[in-house]
Amino acid sequence: MSATRLIDPTLFSEDGSALVGSVCADCGTTAFPAQRSCSRCSGDDVSETVLPREGTLWAYTVQAFEPKRPFRHDGEFAPFGLAYVDLGPVLVESRLTVADVAALSPGLPVQLVTEPLFTDDDGTVVHGFAFAPLEDAR
């Protein structure tokens, strides 16, 4: 079996099961990815927070052109969904596991998953995060 790694471990909780953002103690703003200072009030009293694993689609599209390396899939290109996912305290921009616009709608319940993005030159499979419709993720 080949080795695997997360594209950026700082984006994920220690066990890799959730995304990590930051929350400002001064104004309550939540950000993803985690920030050292608040983008709303410029305060520096921020701390890491584990974000909800489930949310809803806020806005979405399908990317029909191949991205540049290292973000393109290995092998033949296939269009993929992109969305803003409403996790409650924050909107997260993310890939979707679904690329069929007819299967997507605002408010659709989704759940965080990890999926292979590409393979490093040394054979390590690099995983990123995506959101899947809740019924597909279970």
Rank of each mutant, 00 (worst) to 15 (best):
L91T: 13
A34D: 04
T61A: 13
T97N: 07
T56F: 05
S39F: 11
Q35N: 09
E66I: 05
E66T: 08
E76K: 04
Q63T: 15
D45Y: 09
A99D: 11
T97S: 12
P70D: 07
G55Y: 09
L57P: 05
A78I: 07
C41L: 09
G88I: 01
S94G: 08
F71D: 03
V85R: 10
Y84P: 01
G55D: 13
Q35S: 07
R72H: 15
C38H: 00
V50A: 03
V92K: 01
S94M: 05
E54P: 01
V46A: 03
V62I: 12
Q35E: 13
Q63K: 10
L87H: 11
S42V: 09
S47M: 11
D44K: 08
R72P: 00
S47H: 15
C38D: 02
V50H: 00
F80I: 00
V46H: 00
D74T: 10
V50T: 15
T61R: 11
C41Q: 04
E54A: 15
F71C: 06
E93A: 12
R95G: 02
T61F: 05
G88Q: 02
A83G: 13
V92G: 08
D86L: 08
P33T: 02
E76S: 06
L87F: 07
W58L: 03
S37Y: 12
A59H: 11
D44T: 14
R72E: 11
V90R: 01
D86Q: 12
T97L: 03
C41M: 03
R69W: 10
F80G: 03
R40K: 15
R36T: 10
Q35K: 14
F65H: 14
V62G: 06
V98E: 14
S42K: 11
E54K: 05
P79D: 12
E93M: 05
V92P: 06
G81Q: 13
L91N: 05
D44R: 09
V46L: 15
A59D: 06
V62S: 07
D44P: 03
K68Y: 15
R53D: 02
G55E: 07
T49P: 00
C38T: 00
D45I: 04
Y60N: 05
L91V: 04
S42P: 00
S39W: 15
V46S: 01
E76I: 14
K68P: 03
S39P: 12
L51P: 01
L82V: 15
G81N: 10
T61Y: 04
G75Q: 01
S47K: 08
G81R: 09
Y60R: 06
R40W: 05
P79M: 08
F71R: 12
D100V: 14
P33E: 05
V50N: 00
E54Q: 12
Q35V: 11
V92H: 06
E76Q: 10
E76M: 05
R36W: 13
R72W: 11
T56V: 10
V46K: 00
R36M: 04
K68C: 03
A83I: 04
G81W: 07
V101K: 13
R69F: 07
R53E: 06
V62C: 04
V62E: 14
S47W: 10
C41P: 00
D74K: 03
A34M: 10
P67H: 14
D86A: 03
T49F: 00
G55Q: 13
